[in-house]
Simulated assay, not measured.
Amino acid sequence: PGLKKLHIDQICNGQCSVYSVVLSELAVRLARLTPTMSDQTLDYFLSLMRISRRDAAEVTWAHAVNSRRKLEDTLTGPTHMMEADIIMRGCDPKEPIMAHPPDTDSDITLKEWLEEVKAHDKGIKLDFKSLEAVSPSLAVLEGVLTDLSRPVWINADILSGPGGQARPLEPQAFLSAATILPPRTVLSLGWTTGWTAGTDNPGYDWEMVHGMEEICRTVKNPVTFPVRAALLAQSFPQLRWLLQQSDRYTLTVWTGQNDSYTLQDFLPYKQEIDSSKIYYDLSDC
């Protein structure tokens, strides 16, 4: 309904571009008719009475849970979500391990890590810096973690963002690998970024958010966009627009180690965006 009809003579008279636009619009509409899943993270912690209301700011985070000692401490601690990094071991046996580059080894594999997590009620966020580790890791995840109610987030930077120097993961390759995951799995899809003190750092521009939305509009999973706290003040119109494109979308605010920002930078987001739509991954700052 509402789609413009085209006759064959119109197509033959050089109006192929219009035809392409209509087909593109039809594809988007069909994608939106396919069942999708919204973020269930807050519902999970509410059901356990670990948070008091549907406010994503109540969710707390532990970072770089990449060793046995850190895992043990975190599992018995108060945080809701555990963030960890996955790479392939740099020597034999080649398998997914918990480590962040430039490290190439760890005292715990992904399989061992997940086996420990199973006995607890924490949510997890697994961060990938290379495609090499994605498919083997997701196969392990699917085999070990069978509790479908637990929040599971899968994170990767898939586009270049403001000041970003690192090479992003290829978007379609990452999303294709993620199709084996349950539909409630949250895909945390971000931009590579950079920030330099004492300079005028650009924010997320319209091209960046339009590019991200084009990739994510046909994804059926809930999607959170990790956004850098130091870039929020100059990016409000763009990020507000991005959230408005789907009820599957949320933001997760994070900060770099030496970033500078003020709580006032968050005010437009707190005042104009539903509190269930913005997580604040700032606990180590």
Rank of each mutant, 00 (worst) to 15 (best):
S106V: 03
D121E: 13
R89F: 11
I97N: 04
F128D: 04
T109R: 09
L131Y: 09
L114N: 02
D103N: 15
C91R: 15
I108R: 02
T109I: 08
A99I: 04
K94P: 10
K94T: 14
L131V: 11
E112Q: 10
H120F: 08
D127C: 09
T104A: 14
E112T: 09
D92M: 14
L126Y: 04
I124N: 00
M98T: 12
E115W: 14
L131E: 07
S106G: 03
L110A: 05
D105E: 15
R89N: 12
E95K: 11
E112I: 07
E132G: 10
P96R: 03
V117M: 07
H120P: 04
L131F: 08
P93V: 01
V117I: 08
E132Q: 11
T104G: 15
D107Y: 15
I108L: 01
E112L: 08
V117G: 04
E116N: 12
A119F: 12
G90V: 06
F128M: 05
E112C: 07
W113V: 01
M98F: 12
A119D: 10
S130W: 06
L110N: 07
D105S: 15
W113G: 00
L131I: 09
P93T: 02
A99S: 10
V117N: 04
F128P: 05
K94S: 12
D107I: 15
G123E: 02
K122C: 06
H100Q: 08
P96E: 05
F128G: 00
M98V: 09
H120I: 03
E95T: 08
L126T: 01
D105V: 13
C91S: 15
K118E: 14
A119G: 11
A133D: 06
P102W: 08
K111T: 14
D127E: 05
V117Y: 06
P93C: 03
R89I: 07
D103W: 14
K129V: 00
L114K: 00
G90D: 06
K94W: 13
D105R: 14
G123S: 02
S130G: 10
K111H: 11
D127R: 07
C91Y: 14
H100C: 08
L114H: 03
